[in-house]
């Protein structure tokens, strides 16, 4: 399962092609998508706060390890870092490192229609 993942990463680094989600195992896709709620789709945060897209793998891993062992104080991230395996942290680091910086599209707020149920 991880062979295709690493092969995909290798291909991307050689060809410079942007990350196709299909190159990552379902397990990593689910986890990375779970991060999107705070960090934005593919790590591009709408508010610019806490973006992960394009973060160097070693930086990502070092941050998560620091949250895990408590050497880096945080409000929320220690609660997440401690629940993941080493392999998951490595896989997420690989995922976010190949995501391109993109401006996030936000839905436009509307006036509530009063027949809404």
């Amino acid at each position: 399962m991880y062979t295709s993942f690493w092969l995909g990463l290798l291909l991307m680094s050689v060809t410079g092609v942007c990350a196709e989600p299909q190159n990552f195992p379902a397990h990593t896709l689910t986890l990375a998508a779970s991060c999107a709620v705070c960090h934005g789709t593919n790590g591009n945060s709408a508010t610019g706060l806490l973006s992960l897209a394009g973060m160097d793998e070693s930086v990502f891993i070092a941050k998560l390890q620091a949250y895990r062992n408590g050497s880096q104080a945080s409000t929320v991230m220690h609660h997440h870092a401690k629940g993941l395996t080493e392999a998951e942290i490595t896989a997420l680091a690989g995922y976010f490192s190949v995501q391109q910086h993109q401006a996030i599209v936000e839905p436009q707020a509307q006036t509530l229609e009063l027949q809404h149920e």
Binding site: C38, G40, A46, T75, V76, H78, I104, V105, E106
Partner: peptide
């Protein structure tokens, strides 16, 4: 193991919560 709650309420977490909303709406 390792999950849990805030130590105290804070403005910083208020900012994170507003950012959470914009990101989940966009996603």
């Amino acid at each position: 193991d390792g999950g849990g709650l805030s130590d105290v309420p804070s403005d910083l977490e208020g900012t994170y919560a507003q950012s959470w909303a914009r990101n989940i709406w966009s996603d």
